[in-house]
């Protein structure tokens, strides 16, 4: 189990205990976190699971892969700390991770 915190666009915060091995997207969907649609179920197809990784966590979370990068490339809300949450696997190393949600998913 690792703690993952989701911060909504309006500042509302929820912290979840997430089983290691699940993706951050899985955790959000299982807990009805608003703002993550995950239309493709985690196949890196839809980009509707977009989050901003808290800057201090970026070194541990790492940069998006090529596929992920491409699918986000035109997102108007894209930032340097953008990731698709279905591509972030929860592990002990990410215990305490904070992600921020964009106002809209595209």
């Amino acid at each position: 189990m690792s703690k993952i915190t989701f911060v909504q666009h309006d500042g509302e915060t929820q912290t979840l205990d997430v089983e290691n091995g699940l993706s951050v997207m899985n955790a959000a969907v299982d807990n009805l976190i608003p703002g993550i649609d995950a239309d493709c179920g985690g196949e890196c197809n839809c980009a509707t699971c977009h989050v901003y990784v808290d800057e201090t966590w970026m070194p541990k979370v790492g940069l998006p892969g090529a596929m992920e990068e491409a699918i986000m490339s035109l997102n108007p809300e894209r930032q340097s700390n953008s990731r698709l949450s279905c591509q972030i696997k929860v592990s002990d190393e990410l215990d305490g991770l904070v992600v921020n949600l964009p106002e809209f998913q595209y």
Binding site: C44, A47, M67, A70, I71, M72, S73, L74, Y106
Partner: peptide, 11 residues
């Protein structure tokens, strides 16, 4: 194998 073009199509 061109996800950026797919994204462009939607956008």
């Amino acid at each position: 194998n061109a996800p950026a073009d797919f994204a462009a199509g939607r956008q």
